[in-house]
Design a protein around this nucleic acid. Structure first.
Lengths: 118, 118
DNA sequence: ACTGCTACTTTGATTTTCCTAGTGGATAGG
DNA sequence: CCTATCCACTAGGAAAATCAAAGTAGCAGT
């Protein structure tokens, strides 16, 4: 094989639902969905996100942010104040995902485990 | 350490949306969403799932199936024919997730990358 | 000068996910 | 009977993702 497509990326054609696979190629990564959800409340800086999303490490947050930006779901804006400040915000595509996230969230409340970590 | 809570499981309290974190504690794992989506078409056996979900390995499929069963999203039914046949189906909680999956799928079609793996 | 802030990147360990191969039972063909 | 194939998994070990902690670099306050 000339160029092994990296089985990670190939989520591929599932019976009945190709689009869903593509959705999960993005949302199936560990923190992506939660990052997007956090951004729903409005734009935020790196440190702010890192603090509000409790269990994530800086390195992974950084990765996710880059990926989501590359996918066009969030936008990275730099304001060189001088006190350089970076802010991340949802793009149109990112915002379009919010209804689905709402539904997910509603489902979790109704059908998910009796869990008391918070 | 007596019982390390396994940082994986602790997705924790995010600003504005705890429920979403719980949803992604399930759906954020690599194949969970797609497995559930495949089951939407109706009950299926292990081999059938393994074939229809293209990139997944038996061992991971087995893991996901067990996890989803433990979470109560799918049910495992064994029919000892003699030709023992196992079938997995969505439970009520699992079925309740379908609308959200539909929305996700619709979103992916409209807003996701120009991708031509299929 | 020194401490603290934001925004990341680097390092090396830990965990998860992956691929390959194998088990045991059953049905099918020769 | 013997081999061959299918089903439903499990086992082993390697590869990738994630983790926590520390480091880099610019700027602000004391």
């Amino acid at each position: 094989m000339t160029t092994p497509p990296s089985q990670q990326a190939v989520e591929a054609c599932v019976r009945g639902d190709v689009a869903l696979s593509r959705a999960f190629a993005v949302l199936g990564k560990r923190w992506s969905g939660i990052v997007l959800g956090s951004l729903r409340a409005g734009p935020a800086g790196f440190r702010e996100l890192s603090r509000s999303i409790v269990g994530v490490s800086d390195s992974v947050l950084s990765d996710r942010l880059s990926e989501l930006a590359k996918e066009g779901l969030i936008a990275r804006t730099v304001d060189p104040g001088p006190p350089v400040s970076v802010s991340y915000a949802l793009t149109a595509a990112g915002t379009a995902l919010m209804p689905a996230l709402d539904q997910l969230s509603k489902w979790a409340e109704e059908h998910l485990p009796p869990d008391q970590s918070c």
